[in-house]
Design a protein around this nucleic acid. Structure first.
Lengths: 259, 259
DNA sequence: CAGTGGTCTAGACCACTCA
DNA sequence: GAGTGGTCTAGACCACTGT
């Protein structure tokens, strides 16, 4: 492995550049182990901290990932889960009998599992209250928190908000919401999803999210704030999806109106 | 400023937790200056590197940002630029006479500028070739690279790919593409955008992107790979949008088909 | 057990900002 | 020029992994 040639200003950058070019050149393939921090330091004639700083730079770029006691490895390209407006298509559900999540898992040959982590009556966060026409100052909504697993790996965390008036005395208060899921129960309350709106941002994960999603450092999250509008154009459900961005992508297909 | 109470295992975590709770409690407002690294180290009885590690953790979470020679500051909440399927609405363009970018800039009272950084005939990257039905092994496409600025701050980098057969001998080879922009010229070649598809991922920026976009550390990018389909369902244009994620959000509104 | 990454110490010099 | 973050050194101990 040739690790000498790179010229540069800072020692840490020189080490990072040298390792990065090995990776992009394919000499270090995904899954390969990097030289240890001590070894890099020795070869470049620096202190271990300096080699460590170089590794940190590469980690931040998402190129490598460290494993305690084992080594630093070139990150594997992960298969992507794809979500988007198809997530709300009733046709797909009727044709396959599968929820969008289970359909995607079947496509990828993974074992799906959904864990309902909490169901309670809460005061909605400001952005949710705004979109749901609910009071941000009293416990006006039902909140359902779910974690979705693929082969026991956490993939997405979803928090669903429904106005309390629509939720009380229904199966929405139970973990099992019955046939058709939450949208089935909401139809019985007179809300049919007619329009969807997804607002998407990317950001670094909070401490807690990083733990729940078992996120390696340097991986951002994709956050989708979904609002369901019914036949009267009234919002009746808001969900916040948090995906780990190295495993999830979104796809939206839309007509472009002419006039 | 009360910085003592937090208990925890690691000194660096304890410092980070203490500062984080000051921020979330509002005692340190956006724009406020944190105590210096040396001061934090003194108060917590640690080495400076340990306080520095705490700052690094907070930077990674996107909570603070360091300015060389000035200090570390609580990050300002930035106004969001919102993009999405409205980006391709012809109606908005006809009603306002503004491109989506200029419209969004006008809404936010910012000065728009578009810089065409290159126009050339190239071999398309694999993902583009796939979506555009173009050969990935010969210079089969025109590539146009643009950087978009708001008040002279780089906001997004856009790379547009068009099959060479559709582009040659047109204004698409020039920086100024004429009335209606590139879609105007492509209509003259028989392609009217009828359907759009946006594929969205989030990731950390590459070295070069971080420089072009003037990205602070710890800020991911949103990448949108857009494909335009014409009246025959044939793809005729693919663009890759790279946005800095702390300044940009996406919004998609879509009908939910019933059957 | 040896080797790895994770964290910490106690210094040092540099580049930048601001009064 | 005083104070700040940026980088580096040369050690140290710990927790985890594999043989």
């Amino acid at each position: 492995m040739n690790l000498d040639p790179v010229e540069g200003q800072l020692p840490s950058r020189r080490i990072a550049d040298a390792v990065r070019s090995l990776i992009t050149a394919g000499e270090l393939a995904p899954g390969d182990k990097l030289p240890s921090e001590r070894e890099l330091a020795r070869r470049f004639g620096t202190a271990r901290n300096t080699a460590r700083e170089a590794i940190r730079l590469l980690t931040e770029e998402g190129l490598v990932t460290a494993q305690h006691g084992r080594g630093v490895f070139v990150r594997e390209k992960q298969r992507m889960f794809r979500w988007g407006n198809e997530r709300y298509s009733r046709r797909t559900y009727r044709e396959t009998g599968l929820t969008p999540f289970r359909l995607e898992m079947a496509r990828q040959n993974k074992n799906p599992r959904v864990e309902v982590t909490s169901i309670d009556q809460v005061t909605p966060p400001f952005d949710v209250a705004e979109r749901l026409n609910a009071s941000p100052e009293e416990p006006s909504v039902l909140r359902r928190c779910n974690t979705y697993y693929a082969d026991e790996e956490p993939i997405q965390v979803v928090t669903t908000y429904i106005r309390w008036a629509d939720a009380e005395d229904t199966l929405l208060l139970q973990p099992k919401t019955g046939p058709g899921g939450i949208y089935g129960r909401l139809e019985e309350r007179g809300h049919t999803m007619t329009t969807g709106q997804d607002e998407i941002i990317a950001r670094m994960a909070s401490h807690q999210e990083a733990q729940t999603l078992d996120l390696p450092p340097g991986v951002p999250v994709l956050e989708v704030l979904h609002t369901s509008l019914d036949q009267d154009g009234e919002p009746f459900e808001v969900s916040r999806f948090v995906h780990r961005a190295d495993r999830a992508g979104l796809v939206y297909t839309f007509p472009v109106e002419d006039r």
